[in-house]
């Protein structure tokens, strides 16, 4: 009797506790948004939001805080990184799941996982030592653009390499989740392996693939260190991929804690953080909507 009671009590406490923790952690995002908003309010009181978002003039000393170059810088770096990484990651994970033998897989997988463990700074150094000169001396001249090498293209490329491991392992999981039967049926009907991947595995799995991409890039948006080291950090609207840019995370990391005596500077940086958070949110909500659409169409 007594035992039964304690058992029941434990059950109740455990389930309540778990509920509480889950609720707290899911509230965290709102708490963060609210906190950032409260701090950023000061600057929002001096200028309207559209003004702040669309102005290109960033002169903190003069009290001008135009976020447009930073927003654009963030988006461009990420788009470039997507452009580089999505096709190659999909092909890699298809190769690993569908084509590679167990031996090759056992050799390559740990190498890719190793990439995930390399600190951001190291990627940044590698970017400076290898990618910057490569872009400056070999790639840009191909297009006839003079550049220092510290530019959007370099930033996007380094970022692409950094999201590689996550993107590959998540999309590999997506492909691996395709039941063996699907592959067998398709091949038994005389399909080639590529046809099988394309028609029987990729299309029904498009949801998972998009989810993998969202996951990879929610991280990429905020990736700071390596990108900051190679992207040039000039507050201007880039007009080509060979020009420097200044993504939001770099702005925050470079400046927070310094020059805080400038009025409103601190509020401006917190607004930058809020913007970054909102961009990521919009991105993942947008992806979710796309997923819902697809789901309705396929199933």
């Amino acid at each position: 009797m007594n035992l039964k009671l304690t058992r029941k009590l434990k059950e109740v406490i455990a389930s309540r506790l778990m509920l509480l923790i889950t609720a707290l952690s899911s509230m965290l995002i709102f708490v963060m948004i609210l906190g950032l908003f409260l701090k950023a309010r000061l600057i929002l009181a001096t200028q309207s939001l559209p003004e702040l978002l669309l102005s290109t003039s960033w002169h903190p000393l003069r009290g001008e805080f135009g976020f447009y170059p930073f927003i654009l810088g963030t988006i461009w770096v990420t788009v470039l990184a997507m452009f580089f990484s999505i096709p190659s990651c999909l092909l890699t994970s298809i190769y690993l799941t569908e084509y590679a033998s167990a031996k090759i897989r056992a050799f390559i997988k740990p190498l890719i996982d190793l990439l995930a463990g390399i600190p951001s700074v190291v990627y940044g150094l590698w970017g400076i030592l290898v990618v910057v000169p490569l872009v400056k001396d070999h790639i840009a001249p191909l297009f006839g653009y003079p550049t220092s090498g510290y530019c959007l293209l370099t930033g996007g490329f380094v970022l692409a390499i950094m999201v590689f491991p996550v993107l590959i392992s998540v999309s590999e999981e997506v492909f691996r989740a395709v039941p063996h039967e699907v592959r067998e049926i398709s091949l038994a009907l005389g399909a080639t392996r590529w046809q099988t991947v394309k028609h029987a595995q990729m299309v029904p799995r498009i949801k998972g693939i998009i989810a993998a991409i969202v996951l990879g890039f929610s991280r990429a948006f905020g990736e700071t260190m390596a990108v900051m080291m190679v992207v040039g950090n000039v507050a201007q609207v880039p007009s080509s991929v060979f020009q420097p840019a200044y993504p939001l995370p770099a702005l925050i990391a470079n400046n927070y804690g310094e020059m805080m005596s400038i009025p409103l500077y601190d509020a401006a940086l917190l607004l930058a953080a809020l913007l970054l958070l909102l961009i990521v949110l919009v991105f993942s909500v947008g992806a979710r909507i796309v997923l819902l659409r697809i789901e309705r169409r396929v199933v």
């Binding site: 039941p179 039967e181 699907v182 067998e184 049926i185 398709s186 038994a188 029904p204 396929v298």
Partner: peptide
Amino acid sequence: GMLAQKPYPLPM
């Protein structure tokens, strides 16, 4: 052609 043990429609 081959017919498997468990009927398995492709996900479409």
